[in-house]
Design a binder for these strands. Structure first.
Lengths: 206, 206
DNA sequence: AGCGGTATCAGCCATTTGGCTGATATCTGA
DNA sequence: TCAGATATCAGCCAAATGGCTGATACCGCT
């Protein structure tokens, strides 16, 4: 029997490409396309696809991880295969934690994608080879968990704000900002704001 | 007569999508695909396409701008249409300066891409609406021109290096690094390293 | 020969940042 | 109800950063 697939990507061109690649064989059938996470959730409810192939970055609206969580909450829940351009550590781990069946980079060959969908449909875990290692490494030394407030401060930091500016924006004192920063630095194992920004961007924390 | 197109993108999936979209009509014909800039230049020399549709980010190897320069140096020179996900100011301007016939974002509808190729083939300039404004603005207040050395320092900055570390890496004194930074700050109109990093990333300088 | 741009370096000084210790209040879950 | 996490704030101090002025040297261009 054919496996049904729902495509989720905000780029029409990519959707076309995926459709062409997936429908080249005859074991897979694309039953729908969505440009946003919201659309994907609605469509998946109606179409009940076996597999949802979902980009992580979905422009405006909810991202791929939140979409994954919502999709996995459906009954029956489709297998969610994340397909994206980047390989930010935090995002890979986040997607797996959210219940994704796997994670593929967009620069792989079409047949890898097709294979991935097949395996995801049978309940297998699917990870791009170079990612598998890092995910396992990530398991051993898990990414630091920042609190919401810390992430908030981190975002301001990344925009180049000074402590004073962050304090004003968040309606707290500079002492508080410094306190948050101290925690952030410890968790990220850095000792300067620039490096904190760098690490945060590298790992996909922001 | 049909317009011939060469696709350049490091993602097979995107190439498939573009091919599907472009060949849906009958006025355009995809005569080749390249995954890298080098490949694109070689292929364009042989295939002599009317238009080259080129991604800016091409993974490893030369980027879209360098590819554009090389393509425009061919005889006959194809029209180069840049198609990318991001809209970094420096890159847009860089592509235009390099001789690109236009710049489209990947999230536009297929027909816009087809239209863009048609117009590029006739020598028209093609710019996504929201980009046109910014390009013109960019003309008025051109992006600051940093020297090679300053860009180098900026890269280290973005990786979170301290002045001392940058000095060591570049085999100069801290005073020199501070001097470069002072110039960078002036040119970018900022007053802190974090903001310099932010501006540099925003505008695509690094 | 001189000018402008670039890269190098120096010293001074005010501000910002980061490390440290410690305190209070709230909330959550065991 | 008590431990732990979180968010808030304070003070002290050393180091890093950034603004300033000015100097030397090299290079390319006129």
């Amino acid at each position: 029997m054919t496996t049904t697939v729902l495509l989720v990507d905000d780029h029409p061109v990519v959707r076309s490409g995926l459709r062409a690649v997936i429908e080249a064989g005859d074991a897979l059938q694309v039953v729908g396309e969505a440009a946003t996470g919201e659309e994907a959730i609605t469509l998946a409810g109606h179409l009940r696809p076996d597999v949802v192939l979902c980009d992580l970055r979905l422009g405006s609206g909810i991202d791929g991880i939140r979409t994954t969580v919502a999709l996995r909450a459906l009954d029956p829940a489709p297998a969610v295969l994340i397909l994206t351009t980047f390989d930010r550590d935090a995002e890979v781990l986040g997607a797996i934690e959210a219940g994704a069946a796997g994670y593929l980079l967009k620069d792989v060959d079409p047949e890898v994608i097709v294979q991935g969908i097949r395996r995801a449909a049978t309940g297998d875990m699917v990870l791009a080879p170079d990612l598998a290692t890092r995910v396992l490494k990530g398991m051993r030394s898990p990414l630091p968990k920042l609190t919401d407030r810390e992430i908030e401060v981190l975002r301001h930091l990344a925009r180049g704000a000074t402590n004073k500016e962050i304090a004003r924006t968040l309606f707290v004192t500079e002492a508080t900002v410094k306190s948050h920063l101290a925690h952030i630095f410890t968790k990220l194992d850095v000792d300067s704001r620039s490096r904190a920004i760098h690490v945060a961007q590298e790992t996909g924390l922001i």
